[in-house]
Protein backbone atom coordinates (compact mmCIF):
# COMPACT_ATOMS: atom_id res chain seq x y z
CA UNK A 1 0.00 0.00 0.00
CA UNK A 2 2.87 2.27 0.88
CA UNK A 3 4.47 1.68 -2.49
CA UNK A 4 1.19 2.33 -4.23
CA UNK A 5 0.76 5.70 -2.53
CA UNK A 6 4.36 6.69 -3.28
CA UNK A 7 3.96 5.77 -6.92
CA UNK A 8 0.67 7.65 -7.21
CA UNK A 9 2.18 10.75 -5.62
CA UNK A 10 5.15 10.61 -7.92
CA UNK A 11 2.91 10.39 -10.99
CA UNK A 12 0.76 13.29 -9.87
CA UNK A 13 3.61 15.50 -8.68
CA UNK A 14 5.58 15.04 -11.87
CA UNK A 15 2.42 15.75 -13.83
CA UNK A 16 2.72 12.46 -15.67
CA UNK A 17 -0.95 11.88 -14.99
CA UNK A 18 -3.73 14.26 -14.01
CA UNK A 19 -5.86 11.78 -12.14
CA UNK A 20 -5.39 8.50 -10.35
CA UNK A 21 -8.29 6.09 -10.35
CA UNK A 22 -8.09 3.79 -7.35
CA UNK A 23 -9.78 2.55 -4.21
CA UNK A 24 -10.32 4.21 -0.83
CA UNK A 25 -12.30 3.47 2.30
CA UNK A 26 -15.63 5.24 2.21
CA UNK A 27 -17.47 6.90 5.09
CA UNK A 28 -19.37 3.74 5.98
CA UNK A 29 -16.17 1.76 6.04
CA UNK A 30 -16.83 0.15 2.67
CA UNK A 31 -14.41 0.27 -0.22
CA UNK A 32 -15.29 2.72 -2.97
CA UNK A 33 -13.60 4.06 -6.10
CA UNK A 34 -11.74 7.33 -5.79
CA UNK A 35 -10.46 9.85 -8.34
CA UNK A 36 -7.40 11.67 -7.02
CA UNK A 37 -6.13 14.78 -8.75
CA UNK A 38 -4.13 16.26 -5.86
CA UNK A 39 -1.03 14.36 -4.72
CA UNK A 40 -1.68 15.38 -1.13
CA UNK A 41 -4.83 13.31 -1.18
CA UNK A 42 -3.11 10.20 -2.47
CA UNK A 43 -2.67 8.90 1.08
CA UNK A 44 -6.24 7.71 1.07
CA UNK A 45 -5.43 5.06 -1.58
CA UNK A 46 -5.81 1.52 -0.37
CA UNK A 47 -5.46 -1.91 -1.83
CA UNK A 48 -6.65 -5.11 -0.17
CA UNK A 49 -8.75 -8.16 -0.96
CA UNK A 50 -11.95 -6.10 -0.93
CA UNK A 51 -10.76 -4.05 -3.90
CA UNK A 52 -12.32 -6.11 -6.65
CA UNK A 53 -14.34 -3.60 -8.65
CA UNK A 54 -13.39 -3.31 -12.30
CA UNK A 55 -12.27 0.31 -12.38
CA UNK A 56 -11.56 0.22 -16.11
CA UNK A 57 -15.17 1.19 -16.67
CA UNK A 58 -14.22 4.78 -15.75
CA UNK A 59 -11.55 5.06 -18.42
CA UNK A 60 -14.12 5.72 -21.12
CA UNK A 61 -16.31 8.09 -19.12
CA UNK A 62 -16.02 11.65 -20.32
CA UNK A 63 -16.24 13.02 -16.76
CA UNK A 64 -13.01 11.20 -15.97
CA UNK A 65 -11.31 11.63 -19.33
CA UNK A 66 -11.69 15.41 -19.11
CA UNK A 67 -9.00 15.49 -16.37
CA UNK A 68 -6.37 14.46 -18.92
CA UNK A 69 -4.01 11.54 -18.73
CA UNK A 70 -5.25 8.87 -16.33
CA UNK A 71 -3.41 6.61 -13.91
CA UNK A 72 -5.26 3.54 -12.77
CA UNK A 73 -4.77 1.00 -10.01
CA UNK A 74 -5.16 -2.22 -11.94
CA UNK A 75 -5.66 -5.82 -11.02
CA UNK A 76 -5.48 -8.46 -13.76
CA UNK A 77 -9.12 -8.03 -14.91
CA UNK A 78 -8.56 -4.28 -15.13
CA UNK A 79 -5.38 -4.75 -17.14
CA UNK A 80 -7.24 -7.04 -19.52
CA UNK A 81 -10.11 -4.58 -19.82
CA UNK A 82 -7.55 -1.94 -20.76
CA UNK A 83 -6.25 -4.23 -23.50
CA UNK A 84 -9.74 -4.69 -24.91
CA UNK A 85 -10.41 -0.95 -24.78
CA UNK A 86 -7.17 -0.19 -26.61
CA UNK A 87 -7.85 -2.88 -29.20
CA UNK A 88 -11.29 -1.48 -29.79
CA UNK A 89 -9.90 2.04 -30.04
CA UNK A 90 -11.76 3.37 -27.02
CA UNK A 91 -8.58 4.23 -25.15
CA UNK A 92 -5.25 5.45 -26.37
CA UNK A 93 -2.21 3.86 -24.73
CA UNK A 94 -0.71 7.36 -24.46
CA UNK A 95 -3.58 8.38 -22.26
CA UNK A 96 -3.18 5.85 -19.48
CA UNK A 97 -0.59 4.79 -16.93
CA UNK A 98 -1.18 1.44 -15.28
CA UNK A 99 -0.34 0.96 -11.61
CA UNK A 100 -0.41 -2.80 -11.77
CA UNK A 101 -1.16 -4.93 -8.73
CA UNK A 102 0.03 -8.51 -8.82
CA UNK A 103 -2.00 -11.45 -7.56
CA UNK A 104 -0.32 -11.18 -4.15
CA UNK A 105 -0.81 -7.44 -3.87
CA UNK A 106 2.62 -6.22 -5.03
CA UNK A 107 2.82 -3.00 -7.05
CA UNK A 108 4.03 -3.71 -10.58
CA UNK A 109 5.93 -1.26 -12.70
CA UNK A 110 4.92 -1.46 -16.34
CA UNK A 111 7.18 0.62 -18.54
CA UNK A 112 4.66 0.29 -21.35
CA UNK A 113 1.79 -1.77 -22.70
CA UNK A 114 4.10 -4.45 -24.07
CA UNK A 115 5.52 -5.12 -20.62
CA UNK A 116 2.00 -5.38 -19.29
CA UNK A 117 1.17 -7.77 -22.11
CA UNK A 118 4.04 -10.05 -21.09
CA UNK A 119 2.75 -9.99 -17.54
CA UNK A 120 -0.79 -10.89 -18.63
CA UNK A 121 0.48 -13.72 -20.79
CA UNK A 122 1.97 -15.37 -17.72
CA UNK A 123 -1.28 -15.23 -15.74
CA UNK A 124 -4.11 -17.70 -15.39
CA UNK A 125 -6.76 -16.39 -17.79
CA UNK A 126 -9.77 -18.65 -17.36
CA UNK A 127 -12.86 -17.87 -15.29
CA UNK A 128 -12.41 -17.69 -11.49
CA UNK A 129 -12.75 -21.08 -9.80
CA UNK A 130 -15.98 -20.22 -7.99
CA UNK A 131 -17.73 -19.19 -11.20
CA UNK A 132 -16.29 -22.16 -13.07
CA UNK A 133 -17.87 -24.47 -10.47
CA UNK A 134 -21.22 -22.73 -10.79
CA UNK A 135 -21.03 -23.06 -14.56
CA UNK A 136 -20.21 -26.74 -14.27
CA UNK A 137 -23.29 -27.25 -12.08
CA UNK A 138 -25.45 -25.32 -14.55
CA UNK A 139 -24.08 -27.22 -17.50
CA UNK A 140 -25.10 -30.49 -15.93
CA UNK A 141 -28.75 -29.44 -16.27
CA UNK A 142 -30.59 -30.42 -19.42
CA UNK A 143 -31.77 -27.85 -21.93
CA UNK A 144 -35.23 -27.52 -20.40
CA UNK A 145 -33.93 -27.19 -16.84
CA UNK A 146 -31.38 -24.62 -17.91
CA UNK A 147 -34.03 -22.61 -19.69
CA UNK A 148 -36.23 -22.70 -16.63
CA UNK A 149 -33.34 -21.64 -14.41
CA UNK A 150 -32.63 -18.60 -16.52
CA UNK A 151 -36.25 -17.72 -17.06
CA UNK A 152 -36.73 -17.68 -13.30
CA UNK A 153 -33.64 -15.53 -12.84
CA UNK A 154 -34.57 -13.10 -15.61
CA UNK A 155 -38.10 -12.70 -14.28
CA UNK A 156 -36.48 -10.73 -11.43
CA UNK A 157 -34.71 -8.31 -13.78
CA UNK A 158 -35.90 -4.72 -13.37
CA UNK A 159 -33.98 -3.50 -16.43
CA UNK A 160 -31.94 -1.06 -14.39
CA UNK A 161 -28.96 -1.82 -16.66
CA UNK A 162 -26.52 -1.73 -13.75
CA UNK A 163 -24.88 -4.83 -15.29
CA UNK A 164 -24.24 -2.85 -18.42
CA UNK A 165 -23.08 0.30 -16.68
CA UNK A 166 -20.58 -1.62 -14.58
CA UNK A 167 -18.95 -3.40 -17.51
CA UNK A 168 -15.98 -1.63 -19.14
CA UNK A 169 -16.82 -3.28 -22.46
CA UNK A 170 -20.33 -1.77 -22.51
CA UNK A 171 -19.00 1.62 -23.53
CA UNK A 172 -21.53 2.36 -26.30
CA UNK A 173 -22.84 5.91 -26.23
CA UNK A 174 -26.17 4.53 -27.29
CA UNK A 175 -26.84 0.97 -26.23
CA UNK A 176 -28.86 -1.21 -28.56
CA UNK A 177 -31.66 -1.31 -26.02
CA UNK A 178 -32.02 2.45 -26.25
CA UNK A 179 -32.56 2.26 -29.98
CA UNK A 180 -36.26 2.89 -30.57
CA UNK A 181 -36.39 3.06 -34.34
CA UNK A 182 -37.27 0.21 -34.22
CA UNK A 183 -37.63 -0.84 -30.61
CA UNK A 184 -36.19 -4.36 -30.98
CA UNK A 185 -35.99 -4.81 -27.19
CA UNK A 186 -39.03 -3.64 -25.25
CA UNK A 187 -38.52 -0.94 -22.64
CA UNK A 188 -40.72 -2.50 -20.00
CA UNK A 189 -39.59 -5.45 -17.96
CA UNK A 190 -41.40 -8.59 -19.05
CA UNK A 191 -40.38 -12.19 -19.56
CA UNK A 192 -39.74 -12.10 -23.28
CA UNK A 193 -38.13 -8.69 -23.22
CA UNK A 194 -35.86 -9.58 -20.30
CA UNK A 195 -34.75 -12.72 -22.08
CA UNK A 196 -34.04 -10.68 -25.20
CA UNK A 197 -32.01 -8.15 -23.26
CA UNK A 198 -29.85 -10.79 -21.62
CA UNK A 199 -29.24 -12.69 -24.83
CA UNK A 200 -28.29 -9.43 -26.53
CA UNK A 201 -25.93 -8.38 -23.75
CA UNK A 202 -24.30 -11.80 -23.62
CA UNK A 203 -23.78 -11.88 -27.38
CA UNK A 204 -22.32 -8.38 -27.35
CA UNK A 205 -19.76 -9.55 -24.83
CA UNK A 206 -19.04 -12.90 -26.45
CA UNK A 207 -15.31 -13.13 -26.90
CA UNK A 208 -14.87 -9.74 -25.22
CA UNK A 209 -15.71 -10.53 -21.59
CA UNK A 210 -12.62 -10.78 -19.39
CA UNK A 211 -14.27 -12.63 -16.50
CA UNK A 212 -14.23 -9.88 -13.87
CA UNK A 213 -17.73 -10.72 -12.65
CA UNK A 214 -18.59 -7.06 -12.16
CA UNK A 215 -21.95 -7.29 -13.93
CA UNK A 216 -23.16 -10.00 -11.58
CA UNK A 217 -21.93 -8.07 -8.52
CA UNK A 218 -23.65 -4.92 -9.73
CA UNK A 219 -27.05 -6.50 -10.14
CA UNK A 220 -29.31 -5.23 -7.35
CA UNK A 221 -31.57 -8.27 -7.53
CA UNK A 222 -28.83 -10.87 -7.57
CA UNK A 223 -29.13 -12.27 -11.09
CA UNK A 224 -25.89 -14.14 -11.86
CA UNK A 225 -25.76 -12.59 -15.33
CA UNK A 226 -21.96 -12.84 -15.32
CA UNK A 227 -22.33 -16.58 -15.75
CA UNK A 228 -23.74 -16.03 -19.22
CA UNK A 229 -20.78 -14.02 -20.43
CA UNK A 230 -18.36 -16.27 -18.59
CA UNK A 231 -19.83 -19.30 -20.30
CA UNK A 232 -19.07 -17.54 -23.59
CA UNK A 233 -15.52 -17.00 -22.34
CA UNK A 234 -15.21 -20.78 -22.19
CA UNK A 235 -16.77 -21.17 -25.59
CA UNK A 236 -14.51 -18.60 -27.23
CA UNK A 237 -11.58 -20.45 -25.73
CA UNK A 238 -12.69 -23.89 -26.84
CA UNK A 239 -13.78 -22.88 -30.34
CA UNK A 240 -11.17 -20.30 -31.21
CA UNK A 241 -8.48 -20.79 -28.59
CA UNK A 242 -8.48 -17.17 -27.44
CA UNK A 243 -9.05 -15.22 -24.28
CA UNK A 244 -10.03 -11.58 -24.59
CA UNK A 245 -7.77 -8.77 -23.44
CA UNK A 246 -4.37 -10.33 -23.79
CA UNK A 247 -2.90 -7.86 -26.25
CA UNK A 248 -3.56 -4.33 -27.41
CA UNK A 249 -4.06 -5.43 -31.00
CA UNK A 250 -6.74 -8.05 -30.77
CA UNK A 251 -9.77 -8.30 -32.93
CA UNK A 252 -12.85 -9.86 -31.48
CA UNK A 253 -13.52 -13.50 -32.31
CA UNK A 254 -16.94 -12.62 -33.65
CA UNK A 255 -15.60 -10.20 -36.22
CA UNK A 256 -12.75 -12.22 -37.63
CA UNK A 257 -12.56 -15.36 -39.67
CA UNK A 258 -9.77 -17.82 -40.13
CA UNK A 259 -9.76 -20.68 -42.60
CA UNK A 260 -9.19 -23.16 -39.77
CA UNK A 261 -12.03 -21.92 -37.55
CA UNK A 262 -14.04 -24.77 -36.07
CA UNK A 263 -17.52 -24.91 -37.47
CA UNK A 264 -19.01 -27.43 -35.08
CA UNK A 265 -21.45 -24.84 -33.76
CA UNK A 266 -23.18 -24.55 -37.12
CA UNK A 267 -26.30 -26.66 -36.90
Amino acid sequence: MHNLILKAKELLENKIVSVIIGFETGSSGKVRPVFITDSNKADSLIFDERCIQNLAVYLTKKEVKQFGKMGIVATLPIMRSIMVLISEQQLSPENVVVLGISGDGEVLDFADITVMQHYIEKCELGNPAKEQDMLATLNRLNMQEKFEFWQKEFSKCIKCYACRQSCPMCYCTRCAVECNQPQWIPVQSNNLGNMEWHILRAMHLAGRCISCGECGRACPVGIPCHLLTMHLVDQAQSYFGVYAGISDKMSSVLSTYAPNDKESFII
Binding site: E88, Q89, Q90, Y171, C172, T173, R174, S251, S252, L254, S255, T256
Partner: peptide
Protein backbone atom coordinates in the same frame (compact mmCIF):
# COMPACT_ATOMS: atom_id res chain seq x y z
CA UNK B 1 -21.33 16.74 -30.20
CA UNK B 2 -22.48 13.18 -30.88
CA UNK B 3 -21.98 13.20 -34.69
CA UNK B 4 -23.03 9.54 -34.80
CA UNK B 5 -24.04 6.84 -32.36
CA UNK B 6 -21.06 4.92 -33.75
CA UNK B 7 -18.46 4.55 -31.00
CA UNK B 8 -15.63 3.88 -33.41
CA UNK B 9 -14.81 0.37 -32.20
CA UNK B 10 -14.15 -0.60 -35.86
CA UNK B 11 -15.06 -4.20 -35.25
CA UNK B 12 -17.24 -3.78 -38.33
CA UNK B 13 -14.14 -3.05 -40.37
CA UNK B 14 -12.71 -6.53 -40.04
CA UNK B 15 -16.03 -8.18 -40.73
Amino acid sequence: PLYSTCVGCFLCQSV
